[in-house]
Design a binder for these strands. Structure first.
Length: 853
RNA sequence: GCCUUUGUGUCGGAACUGGUAUACGAGCCGCACUUAAAAUGCGGUGCCCGUAAGGGAUUGAGGGUUCGAAUCCCUCCAAAGGCACCA
């Protein structure tokens, strides 16, 4: 055994051995408790940095721990390989996206993930851009299509000029493209494919309550995104136009008597019909200018409102009031009915609008049932209705119900629930994605590709990617032109490809049966493994990927393709890895563009993967942000060196470790009892720290360090002549040696999931493995004896008025009276009490005595 | 503006169910080993006053509950993230 810890010499050897032995393979349908551990698969960008390494380490430790606990663990890995960066790289470097992607995958798998010491079952690797995967993406799309869950409709959509494609709502942040923070998204009216996620809005919302193992903030974000509002749709008629009706959506139908105007979105279909000729020019000018405003301008213009009256009047069905109709771009065309009732007294925005255009303000809800003379600002709270005819005196809640009742019986409205969530726009005008398996036939319309003709292969040869002017697929006439499967006449393929989020909405199901050539996945296998017991990933997918995957799972359950209706039982959303950025001088998220990336290769070469793993686990709890610093990473390298040198010292002294691992626990000499106790305590602490809902790796590692320090202290020779240089052991009795070995052996087992290489090496060097091919990683997780975690002596804390004064070492289990008398006779206590009368004594058994004076 | 999360030494962070605040690591200081340095082993190290013994204040700020509060309650401040003209 090398006296120095040199990770470079051991890590690769074990990685190859584990691979050869197949110890990380998951066994389908095995009659054993399963554990499906998953980490969000990466986009093969070509380089993983420490931020990625952190999340893979966390998930890997969880998997390894469960494996040692005896679970049948599925821990797979794959590649989210379709997407724009491949096309952009292709244009920049003149490489084909496929070639570029495959090279990146090879590098990331072999040089990065494998070298981190991960325990994936690589037989299940999936790559979303390979035909054997997207075959089934297409097949699933057809199932959605058959169920009517995939529809084509014309709608205003988000267009990113940089990406040259449309985006889903979830992929627009602050009016800008999620990939291009500086590029404004343009609204375009286009005919596009949508998946009807809104059909599942209610279930996606309600089932969040079932997800006990999800962090609250992720659930809150999903709730907000779904954005359920309960209210009413009310019908307003138009003066002089008996056939026209304006519907408005409101959550405050209790304020309907306070309506003093209506506002339509400029895009509302009735606008021109309702415009009086004298207002025609003003209205047309306004619509024109609104059209030219970008989404961003409409939002930044915020509070400053604009608008134009149409000149016509609407009639409030409740009180017959005639009220002016306006248009204004503060009303969104895409939400509700695209029209709102203006109630300035009870809505901030309406209040501002009314003040600006001098419209009347009529209070109809007040806190005490009396109307105020003049409102200085909108009164937004619930209250008692006033000025509201037959509804006067009701509270807002009650009034909301009654008003809906009245509206229904008078054909003037109905109850309505409105969601913010829109259907998922999934078509993309780009090349590097999964082709949508549909055919446009002039005679038959849209015809699905026959399932037996799947997959529709994405052509690789002869494609010219320009990034402009639509999908290059449209120029590939050989691919494009096809006979209609229905009528046999000339037809054309759909040239749009699918949003890559579709690929990632079901990859976790494919892992259950990754090589199936006949179907997406076999029922029995997918139902054996699903749902995922522990999912780990970044919070940036709180809405996007996590919502889409939930939707997919529910839809597939309804189709009978999977049993569970929630895919991820427990979710760990890990914090980002940040580092000082030399450009800005601030701590920022690690990213190439900021120039603050720490690559893995150099670090692995210098300190080894085990140190990298330990540091990313130790520096902060998993949910928290982690600031990368090589200086403190060194602490982990030192710890592992210390672990290593102790093994060497043992071996050097010819300590026989294979002989006996058992000993009589009742016969332990006092000299070693505390080390034995420390060992049991450590097993307990680390076991608890690695249990789900805890996952506090930092304290688990800290406990391991304490145990190693304890071992050093116990074995260290502190006599004068031996106080220098490296660690020297004092002479120990046979029994003491056995306890040292017991402690050290358990320490290796506890560290094995976190530092897999060094523990495996020492395990073999010291002979804990009986045969060469035995691995520490399939050894049973250590057990502890609760009896042996308890000290028989404790420190009794002595307090006066709750303040610490002194402590005494006493036997465990002292009765109240005994503890009291110790406190009252302790010399420090006596001098502090100083003969003042004792009011009260509080005793917490085996912990403290508090004397109140 | 609304929602969520977080505020503990020089730094990363511990602290069970309210019970010795600052575990573990980094940094710094010292000792040993060494010709020397590095590495390693051992010890010290939150702040203020004090040579010391000892004393005092302290978990973003202020108040409250309690024998006792980092922990529970209220008000405020700060930071990070999310949502935001959604009627």
């Amino acid at each position: 055994m090398n006296p120095e810890y040199e990770p470079q010499n051991i890590e690769e050897k074990w990685q190859e051995r584990w691979d050869r032995l197949g110890i990380y393979q998951a066994h389908d349908l095995e009659n054993k408790k399963k554990f499906y551990s998953l980490v969000m698969f990466p986009y093969p960008s070509g380089d993983l940095h420490m931020g990625h390494m952190r999340v893979y380490t966390i998930s890997d430790v969880i998997s390894r721990h469960r494996r040692m606990q005896g679970y049948n663990v599925l821990n797979p890995m794959g590649w989210d390989a379709f997407g724009l960066p491949a096309e952009n790289a292709a244009m920049a470097r003149g490489r084909h996206p496929q070639q570029w992607t495959q090279e990146n995958i090879k590098y990331m798998r072999d040089e990065q993930l494998k070298k981190l010491g991960t325990s994936y079952d690589w037989r299940r690797e999936v790559t979303t851009c390979e035909p054997d995967y997207y075959h089934w993406t297409q097949w699933l799309f057809l199932q959605f299509f058959k169920k009517g869950l995939a529809t084509r409709k014309e709608a205003p959509v988000n267009w990113c000029p940089e990406c040259q494609t449309v985006l889903a709502n979830e992929q627009v942040e602050d009016g800008k493209c999620w990939r291009h923070g500086n590029i404004e998204v343009i609204q375009k009216k286009m005919s596009q494919w949508f998946l009807k996620i809104t059909d599942y809005a209610d279930r996606l919302l309600n089932d969040l309550d079932k997800l006990k193992g999800w962090p609250e903030h992720v659930k809150v974000m999903q709730r907000n995104w779904i954005g359920k509002s309960k209210g009413a749709e009310l019908f307003f008629t138009v003066e002089g136009k008996p056939n026209v009706r304006i519907n408005v959506f409101t959550t405050r139908q209790d304020t309907v008597f306070g309506v003093t105007y209506l506002v339509l979105a400029p895009e509302h279909p009735l606008v021109l019909d309702l415009t009086e000729s004298r207002q025609k020019k003003a209205v047309q000018d306004y619509i024109e200018s609104a059209k030219h405003k970008t989404e961003l301008e409409r939002m930044t213009a915020e509070k400053s409102k604009t608008g134009v009256p149409l000149g016509s009047l609407a009639i409030n069905p409740f009180n017959g009031d005639e009220i002016p109709i306006w248009i204004s771009d503060y009303v969104l065309a895409g939400y509700g009915t695209g029209a709102v009732m203006g109630v300035p007294a009870h809505d901030e925005r309406d209040f501002v609008f009314a003040k600006l255009f001098d419209l009347p303000i009529k209070q109809v809800v007040s806190p005490d049932g009396k109307a105020a003379t003049e409102l200085k600002s909108a009164y937004l709270d619930a209250g008692i209705l006033v000025n509201s005819g037959m509804f006067n005196g009701l509270d807002s809640e009650k009034a909301k119900e009654k008003i809906i009742d009245w509206a229904m019986s008078n054909n003037s409205g109905c109850a309505r629930i409105q969601y913010k969530l829109r259907d998922w726009l999934i078509s993309r005008q780009r090349y590097w994605g999964c082709p949508i398996p549909l055919i446009h036939c002039e005679k038959c319309g849209i015809v699905p590709v026959d399932e037996k003709d799947l997959p529709v292969i994405l052509p690789i040869e002869g494609i010219e990617i320009k990034g402009q002017g639509g999908s290059p697929l449209a120029n590939d006439t050989k691919w494009l032109n096809i006979k209609c499967p229905k009528c046999g006449q000339a037809a054309k393929r759909e040239t749009d490809t699918m949003d890559t989020f579709i690929d990632s909405s079901w990859y976790f199901l494919r892992y259950a049966d990754a090589t199936n050539k006949k179907e997406a996945f076999a029922l029995d296998k997918v139902n054996y493994w699903m749902p995922i017991d522990q999912y780990v990933g970044g919070v940036e997918h709180a809405i996007l990927h996590l919502l889409y995957s939930r939707f997919f799972t529910k839809a597939l359950k309804d189709m009978g393709l999977v049993d569970c209706d929630e895919p991820f039982t427990n979710l760990l959303s890990q914090g980002m890895v940040t580092m000082l950025s030399p450009q800005s001088g601030r701590i920022e998220k690690m990213s190439k563009s900021r120039g603050n990336v720490v690559g893995t290769t150099a670090f692995f070469e210098q300190y080894g993967a085990d140190s990298a793993r330990l540091f990313s686990l130790f520096a902060a709890p998993p949910e928290q942000e982690l600031v990368w610093s090589e200086d403190s990473a060194i602490g982990q390298y030192r710890f592992l060196g210390r672990l290593w040198r102790f093994a060497h010292a043992l071996q050097d002294q010819g300590v026989e470790v294979t002989a006996k691992t058992e000993f009589d626990e009742n016969n332990v000499p006092a000299s070693a009892a505390s080390l034995l106790r420390l060992t049991h305590k450590t097993i307990k602490a680390v076991s608890e720290d690695l249990e789900k809902e805890h996952y506090v790796f930092n304290t688990a590692i800290s406990s391991c360090m304490i145990l190693l320090n304890g071992i050093y202290k116990f074995t260290g020779d502190k006599t004068e002549e031996n106080n220098g240089g490296s660690h020297k052991s004092k002479s120990l009795s046979e029994l003491e040696k056995q306890i040292v070995i017991f402690a050290y052996r358990n320490l290796l087992l506890l560290l094995a999931p976190m530092a897999p290489h060094i523990t495996e090496q020492i395990w073999h060097d010291l002979g804990f493995a009986r045969v060469e091919d035995e691995s520490i990683h399939v050894h049973a997780w250590p057990k502890y004896d609760v009896k042996l975690t308890i000290d028989n002596e404790i420190e009794l804390v002595l307090q006066i008025n709750g303040k610490f004064v002194n402590k005494q070492i006493v036997q465990r289990g002292l009765r109240k009276a005994e503890a009291e008398s110790i406190a009252l006779t302790d010399s420090k206590m006596v001098s502090k009490i100083d003969n003042r009368p004792v009011q009260k004594i509080i005793v917490v058994i085996d912990r403290l005595v508090n004397v109140v004076i």
